[in-house]
């Protein structure tokens, strides 16, 4: 018997009473989605900024190598993107667009097409996500309702910069991935 069949037959041999799946109700949400989303991102150690703030940040020249995956800022791209994500190792700033955000926890949904290369939002030193403030949902139930069964090879709820507290529980931002997350609500 293959190992697969062995495991499945062992499971079948266990007498189990049927248990129905529960129905997930609509949970109410009170308050302003935008304010709650902003507070959530801040709690996750990210920042919410305006388009003007982003532009002046970009003007300041602190980011040497920049890649924008969205049209609006494509003129800022100054590196060549190849198929190989290893070339992104020295990237200082990536700008991408998020599909929608979740107010209760600041999570932003991204799929393959939003990232180009899957490594992009992780390997870049700093990350900017542009998000339409009309595209906010209250909680994770609404979020999955919105995604539905849509097909993307990779999907990501990204809620903040890379962080760790593994050294004596002191919070440090920038463990392996992006050292900052700025969300531009437009």
């Amino acid at each position: 018997m293959s190992c697969r069949d062995l495991i499945l037959s062992k499971i079948k041999a266990v007498p189990l009473e049927p248990k129905a799946l529960p129905i997930i109700p609509e949970f109410e949400f009170e308050g302003d989605l935008k304010a709650r989303f902003t507070a959530s991102i801040q709690a996750n150690k990210g920042e919410v900024i305006s388009k003007e703030e982003l532009l002046s940040l970009l003007d300041s020249g602190v980011f040497e190598k920049v890649y924008s995956h969205i049209e609006d800022f494509s003129s800022l791209t100054n590196i060549k993107i190849t198929e190989d994500a290893h070339h992104l190792d020295n990237l200082n700033l990536a700008i991408i667009r998020g599909q929608f955000g979740v107010a209760e926890n600041g999570a932003i949904w991204l799929e393959d097409q939003d990232m180009g290369l899957r490594a992009l939002p992780f390997i870049t030193e700093h990350l900017v996500i542009v998000l339409d403030s009309a595209h906010l949902v209250a909680n994770m139930h609404q979020a999955y309702g919105r995604i539905g069964l849509k097909e993307s090879g990779f999907g990501l709820f990204l809620a903040g910069p890379s962080k760790t507290a593994d050294i004596e529980q002191s919070l440090v931002i920038g463990a392996h991935g992006a050292k900052s997350l700025r969300v531009v609500l437009v």
Binding site: N105, G106, A107, S152, G153, F154, F157, L158, A159, A165
Partner: peptide, 17 residues
């Protein structure tokens, strides 16, 4: 787990690049 609202990266792997 840690009293945060969600982990910062929640990756859904459906098919390889």
């Amino acid at each position: 787990a840690t009293g945060q609202s969600v982990t910062n990266y929640n990756s859904h792997f459906r098919s390889p690049s």
